[in-house]
Amino acid sequence: MTKFQPVRKAVIPVAGNGTRFLPATKSMPKEMLTIVDRPVVQYAVDEAMAAGIEHIIFVTSRNKTAIEDYFDTTPDLTSSLTRAGKTAQVDLLEKMLPIAGTVSYTRQQSPLGLGHAVWCARELVGNEPFALLLPDMVSFGPQGCMAGLMDLYDEVGGNVIAVEECAPHETSSYGIVGIGNKVEHGFEVSDMVEKPDPAVAPSNYYLNGRYILQPEIFGLLASQERGAGNEIQLTDSMQRLAEQQAFHAHPYGGRTFDCGSKRGFIEANVAFAMLRAELGEDLAQSIQDLVAGHQQAVRAA
């Protein structure tokens, strides 16, 4: 049992418009786009639950009711599958259904940035530490990223963030952290810099969309100060909180796919499909054939 206040709740912001995936997201939430046969948002929920989270808080917006419906019962579908003798599908649907009362929803009425979305969850989180998972960032590895953060939190408490290494020349695309004293499951964060030039970046460790934050972050977000893009940035308040409380970083040993981009979304589909026994071998051969065909076409052009 941790000696620190336990992390029981997770915030998952799902209010974004998903304009990079238009026209697919014209009438459906981007978080409901599927990686193989499960929506993107399901991966974040499963990762949180596997790490010991007890309550999921979704920050939604207009036209996101499909997410609420997805995490609800479907009596008509269940009855139809039962009559057809498709018990495996019924069991699958029941297994993914959250326990009653363990999911909450709150609205972000205006698209004012990630910091604002997190602030919208303040009343549901209350005065306790909480996890934050950005659903576009999908973990791929033997262990979910949030489980590693929980291990580090049990060791040091305070605020914990997940990081991964990027190529040194790519630091200007990410929030980058400085490396301080090492601990068993990570290291102390000595600095947080938003999109630094590679020449002055404190490291090549970037924030990958998984956090454990103390509730004092809400008081800092309450000032509603605008940052980059004229939005309320979470990183700005994290930097201010770091002046008062310790931050530690957990280097994730797997890989995170940015499913908010088309390339990352396609890569995630391929990676997760390759893990499936019924798909992996045939898919690997199909990809090899497609690559060979593409290369041949390029040479002939």
Rank of each mutant, 00 (worst) to 15 (best):
D46H: 05
E47K: 00
E47F: 03
A48L: 10
A48D: 04
M49K: 12
M49C: 02
M49H: 06
A50P: 02
A50D: 14
A51I: 05
A51T: 05
G52Q: 13
G52F: 12
I53H: 07
I53W: 08
I53C: 10
I53T: 11
E54K: 14
H55S: 06
H55W: 01
H55E: 14
I56D: 02
I56Y: 01
I56V: 14
I57E: 11
F58T: 09
F58D: 05
F58P: 05
V59Q: 04
V59I: 08
T60A: 11
S61F: 02
R62W: 11
R62A: 14
R62Q: 14
N63F: 12
N63A: 14
K64D: 00
K64V: 06
K64S: 00
T65V: 14
T65P: 04
A66N: 08
A66D: 15
A66I: 04
I67R: 00
I67G: 03
E68K: 15
D69M: 02
D69F: 05
F71P: 05
F71L: 06
F71M: 04
D72E: 15
D72H: 15
D72R: 15
T73E: 15
P75M: 04
P75W: 05
D76V: 05
D76C: 02
D76R: 04
L77V: 10
L77H: 08
T78L: 09
T78M: 03
S79G: 08
S80L: 11
S80H: 13
S80R: 12
S80P: 06
L81W: 01
L81G: 02
L81Q: 02
T82F: 05
T82W: 02
T82G: 02
T82P: 06
R83K: 10
